[in-house]
Design a protein around this nucleic acid. Structure first.
Lengths: 230, 230
DNA sequence: TGGTGCTGATTTGTACACAACATCGTTGGA
DNA sequence: TCCAACGATGTTGTGTACAAATCAGCACCA
């Protein structure tokens, strides 16, 4: 796969993965190859190439005769993925850190501004988008490509489930606002660390926040079980 | 993809990946979809599904009008992958370690025996096979599936290049024997750690040996450059 | 009334024909 | 003699028809 075909593949792949992570395609949703083929003005063949990759990476599950379904992840499996994600988070500052220039520092500062605006007018979708943009900005701090690739995969695999359960329609508006508040603190802390070039600290801060956000999710899941059993 | 189709996919995928890692398909070799289709008694379509995954994971590169080529990795990129692999190695003992039972301990002991036999009659191919078997046995020590998956990918991606450069046709028989010797020490150390249930130590020993094996490779690459420039 | 099997519709999986592209050898002219 | 253009050949990428599988709805019977 080369040239134009490659470019189209990347375009569709990135877009679909983003839709899955932003919950435009929520877990359990069924996609149809022919619909996608029509949307991207091609035949099923190139679409199937993209869906195959998304399936290999665990975002989708194709079932013969049924359809292509967006996967869901139970809390036990999610915990395994989070454990690994926590460890990888810290490596951002340890493996080939890229000294941030002035543009990068401004970008982190801009993230903080966007986040403060979000606190005033909360929205799940805007939160999801900001969270993703922030993640990609963080990834520019390491030049280790394999680390970037694996971190991306763990991020996309966990964040959508976390968003759905922690700040989704299930949760109250209160929990959404609360999560945005925690996120603002993370962005502020990391922006400060980046401002003074302390990349190792960035990794440690990130690690702590990733771990805490899962801990909150788990606690909330525990409450739900408790409430259901009453 | 489900049922029988899935099983066939896994079978072909695993086999081809193994061939690539054991250097039956060395870097630069060109594969033909139609040949593979004939070998596995099917059409190009299911084969392309497998090749697509192998390409996504970086083992292959399909070029329109040319062929499907086994990738090679330059020493700079390899170093990035190794840095990450070193870090992940240690996690084996920290993330969901599986307490080894008597069977597992015997399996490690058997590895040591195989390794001692290999020292007496060195063979690159047998070394590659033993190295891979040992890796898979190590993976049974953690129950964290994402960690297993990523470790596998890093292993398959680096080991084939390492084998080619450190113990392949390029190197002398002396370097092969030397590497087998180092490997025997690693297997012995790890078997001992497993025997007394010290899984955290297993991770640390493994980490050290992975780092050292790359260091030797890099040193040898340096010598070659030096020799070439004389 | 409940359950059981059938049939049609829907969807993914496979096979195959053809298009697009790259490579190499050949041939013709300067 | 050199080189440039062309065509033959071989390979992956795309489109499409059909096979295989699942599911829902319904008829039918105990």
């Amino acid at each position: 796969m080369t040239g134009e075909a490659r470019a189209r593949f990347e375009r569709i792949y990135t877009l679909l993965r983003e839709r899955i992570c932003l919950l435009d395609y929520p877990p359990g949703m069924r996609l149809r190859e022919e619909d996608l083929a029509e949307e991207f003005d091609t035949s099923r063949t190139p679409i199937r190439r993209v869906l195959a990759r998304l399936e290999d990476e665990g975002y989708l599950r194709s079932v013969h005769g049924v359809g292509t379904i967006v996967t869901d992840i139970d809390i036990a499996s999610l915990e395994q993925v989070y454990r690994l994600r926590v460890e990888l988070s810290e490596l951002i500052g340890k493996l080939s850190p890229a000294e941030p220039d002035e543009d990068a520092k401004r970008a982190f500062s801009a993230m903080k501004t966007r986040c403060e605006a979000l606190v005033r007018t909360p929205s799940q979708r805007a939160f999801a988008q900001l969270n993703m943009d922030f993640f990609h900005l963080l990834m520019t701090l390491t030049e280790n490509e394999p680390l970037q690739e694996f971190s991306e995969r763990l991020y996309y695999q966990t964040t959508r489930i976390w968003l759905k359960r922690a700040a989704g329609e299930d949760g109250t508006e209160e929990t959404l606002a609360s999560e945005i508040g925690f996120f603002l603190r993370e962005v502020s802390d990391i922006a400060a660390a980046v401002a003074c070039g302390a990349l190792e600290s960035v990794g440690q801060i990130r690690r702590a926040h990733v771990a805490m956000s899962f801990a909150r999710l788990k606690a909330r899941a525990g409450e739900e079980v408790e409430a259901a059993s009453l």
